[in-house]
């Protein structure tokens, strides 16, 4: 892993080192930022482990463990709230049998919430991986998830 991390980080050459960019890059390639890699990351970037930990623990998008194969993010922003994102979320929790922040058995789906997908005119919205879905009705969810199964 050490070598792989170093290789990936070789692409991130900001001066002074940019920890956030480096971690995003790692996450893009590894799916998450393994905690065990923090010392190598710090050393490669020439910063301290504390500095890496500070950034890694601050940003909601950075994850220290691998998510499921598909990441579902339900928007709970105000427009979606007004348009019933609560029901959407409950339906998903029931059908996947998981809570927000958890990964479904089999590791297929991880369920998360997000704040505004910028799709408010088509609320309620949800993002699966990189696909944005709008004007969602709870009744459509099963078919939609089937698409990713």
């Amino acid at each position: 892993m050490q070598e792989q991390v170093k290789e990936i980080l070789a692409q991130e050459k900001s001066k002074p080192p940019n920890i956030l960019k480096a971690l995003l890059l790692l996450q893009e390639q590894l799916g998450h930022v393994p905690v065990e890699a923090v010392p190598v990351i710090a050393h490669t970037l020439d910063v301290t482990t504390a500095q890496v930990a500070g950034v890694l623990s601050y940003y909601p998008d950075l994850r220290v463990s691998a998510p499921g194969r598909h990441l579902i993010r339900v928007c709970i922003g105000e427009s979606c709230f007004a348009n019933g994102c609560g029901r959407l979320l409950r339906t998903l929790q029931d059908s996947l049998r998981i809570d927000v922040g958890e990964t479904a058995a089999g590791g297929r789906f991880t369920l998360e919430t997000m704040s505004c997908a910028g799709n408010c005119a088509l609320s309620p919205s949800m993002i699966v991986d990189r696909d944005l879905h709008g004007r969602l009705l709870p009744s459509q969810l099963d078919a939609l998830l089937d698409h990713y199964r």
Partner: peptide
């Protein structure tokens, strides 16, 4: 506040 990165684990 924490020292180092141990708290992550």
């Amino acid at each position: 506040p924490v020292a180092g990165a141990a708290a992550l684990s």
